[in-house]
Design a protein around this nucleic acid. Structure first.
Length: 557
RNA sequence: GCGCCUAUAGCUCAGUCGGAUAGAGCGCGCGCCUCCUAAGCGCGAGGCCGUUGGUUCGAAUCCAAUUAGGCGCGCCA
């Protein structure tokens, strides 16, 4: 809000300078106001003069001087404007602006941090979408943490966000799954059946079949194999999906939609989308298979859509799925995939373009892998062989809050080495506790204040003398608090949820610094009340940010 | 071989369309609880921002090359 105001003054100054002939007319785009790292460079600053030097064909210093000369004199906000370094323009605001801003922040309460950046644009975020043939592993946990947090942040920014899980309940994997299930089923009934070489050796599917036998006995034993596999698969999928749903729910993630791949085949959507690609002349027939000519949108080679055996590929189904997303009216579709799906990105985006959807409406965020170490050895994770650490185990080991914070705080571009042996000790050192501790401390102070008879009913009232908050640590804290809405927007717009984790650590740090510098209780009442108001604001922001990350904000620790 | 991601303090990582003296946590050294939660705070040591070249007023950030690691390049998903 202050940045916007400064931007207007700045733009006014440039126009005045041009109008009076001090500067030759030129185009200036979006002006950038930032908060200097070092407060001695002003409360706010802009590098506009340096950026404009080229298009204005004038030295940065001269532009800066002209802007300063024509800067509005009588604003209620700005105390002074000066030029520094190679052409920075630094703004110093009038005393009390921080405290006034804090007042506005407090009036907004838990709406502080929300914005209309997204203008209710309809956004769908698809994440995790793990094969329902096994349990969720630690890599899925990362995707869950990132996707859910991004969704929350975008919601705060005024996007209309839906979370979606795509269930791969069709195709080859499911066939193999069925064969493995059938084999385990028969083995559990005492038959000597060899286990398929590429089957799913996980213990979990043995347990699932055991459960089936307990519930329904051996009634599938003499059934026709194809039908039997189908029924066993159906049974196991339901179990698996509900297990997955529960694990995610325990991890704090709830989806709006669980979308079945099979439904796309059954409903004819796959056939339809192939037909429309055919009409647009994107298809080739070769070796009895049907290919999408990806070269038409810049890819190296065609890709199979329908195999020689008549079965559509995963790619074909995924095109139909994304077509379906846009047909449901989403303006923006975001997928979060593991790095191993990298090769799939360009051809999915290309296929959407081929279908006539504007480039940019589908965006894919790739996350690098989580590598697991144990006893210094790399563990190869594989769902098929059943060697992986599950989401449940992770939550049990390190706790949901620590796990979510850990995954959200790292950029999705970074490869994570996760050492199981250190997981627990790491969790004790996890920065999440630093942030939660700040929240708990505040709660404790506020409840003590209440006990001591302070009236905390309306700390956002204009009778609270926020002007008393002039300690260096108080002002630094307020500055940090004021950053929150911009941080949320930045994280949401750039799809970088890890930034909010970094921000909230900074905020907690500023609070702890304040705590060690100033006493809240036991001062003269007006000051104590002002400080109560201050920390209430901090608490609100921490809670909002942790909530977006799916992390608890405890009242006590 | 081709494509994508990564390389910043001893370790794990941030670093805002290129901007002012490159930051945090952990670990290490010193100090701070008669006081609202010491899961905290303060001070200090620790950097060729992988390497080389380029772009410009200015590069950890952009471009090229190169080295190392991860991932992908299937009628798998």
């Amino acid at each position: 809000m202050i940045k916007e105001e400064l931007k207007e003054y700045l733009s006014e100054a440039i126009q005045q300078a041009i109008h009076s002939g001090a500067l030759a007319p030129f185009d200036y785009g979006d002006l950038n106001i930032e908060v200097p790292r070092d407060a001695s460079n002003g409360d706010f600053s802009t590098n506009a003069a340096m950026l404009l030097a080229k298009s204005a064909k004038t030295a940065p210093q001269r532009i800066a001087q002209n802007i300063v000369d024509y800067f509005p004199q009588d604003t209620k906000l700005v105390q002074s404007v000066e030029i520094a370094g190679p052409g920075f323009i630094n703004f110093y605001l009038k005393d009390g602006w921080l405290q006034d801003s804090l007042y506005k922040l407090l009036r907004q309460g838990d709406r502080f941090g929300r914005s209309n950046q997204g203008k209710k644009k309809k956004v769908q975020i698809e994440f995790v979408s793990a094969n329902p043939t096994g349990e969720l592993h630690i890599g899925n946990a990362r995707g869950a943490a990132i996707g859910d947090t991004l969704a929350s942040l975008m919601s705060l920014c005024g996007y209309d966000v839906k979370r979606e899980f795509y269930i791969n309940d069709a195709g080859n994997q499911i066939e193999k799954f069925g064969v493995s299930l059938e084999c385990r089923y028969l083995q559990e009934l005492g038959e000597d059946v060899p286990f398929p070489e590429d089957g799913y050796v996980g213990q979990d599917i043995i347990l699932t079949m055991r459960q089936l036998i307990e519930e329904q006995g051996d009634k599938y034993k003499d059934m026709e194999p194809t039908l039997r596999r189908e029924l066993l698969t159906q049974y196991a999928l339901e179990k698996k999906i509900s297990t997955i749903r529960k694990a995610l729910c325990d991890f704090g993630v709830e989806y709006d939609v669980w979308f079945s791949e099979q439904s796309l085949h059954d409903g004819g959507a796959v056939a339809d989308v192939i037909e429309s690609l055919k009409e647009k002349n994107y298809l080739l027939e070769e070796d009895d298979a049907l290919w999408l000519d990806c070269r038409l949108f810049g890819e190296a080679k065609p890709e199979v859509l329908v195999r020689a055996n008549g079965v559509p590929t995963y790619y074909a189904a995924d095109i139909a799925y994304h077509d379906n997303k846009f047909k449901r009216g989403f303006d923006q579709v975001i997928d979060i995939w593991g790095a191993d799906h990298h090769g799939h990105v360009a051809r999915m985006i290309g296929a959407m373009e081929a279908l006539g959807y504007e480039r940019g409406r589908l965006q894919v965020i790739l996350m690098q892998f989580v590598r697991l170490y144990q006893d210094g050895e790399l563990l190869k994770m594989s769902k098929r062989t059943g060697t992986y650490v599950t989401l449940e185990e992770l939550v049990e080991e390190v706790g949901r809050d620590a796990a979510r914070f850990f995954f959200v705080m790292r950029s999705s571009d970074s490869l994570i080495d996760f050492d199981l042996d250190l997981a627990k000790s790491q969790s004790a050192e996890n920065p999440v506790y630093y942030v939660q501790y700040a929240h708990a401390r505040i709660c404790s102070i506020l409840s003590a204040a209440k006990e001591q008879g302070y009236n905390l009913a309306d700390l956002a009232d204009d009778k609270i003398r926020l002007a008393l908050l002039t300690d260096e640590s108080e002002e630094a804290l307020i500055r940090k608090m004021l950053d929150y809405p911009d941080e949320v927007i930045y994280a949401a717009v750039h799809r970088e949820p890890h930034r909010i984790a970094a921000y909230i650590q900074d905020l907690a740090g500023a609070f702890h610094h304040f705590y060690n510098n100033c006493r809240v209780l036991g001062e003269e009442e007006p000051l104590s009340l002002a400080r109560c108001a201050l920390i209430l604001g901090v608490k609100t922001i921490i809670k909002s940010a942790l909530n977006a990350m799916g992390v608890q904000a405890p009242e006590k620790m």
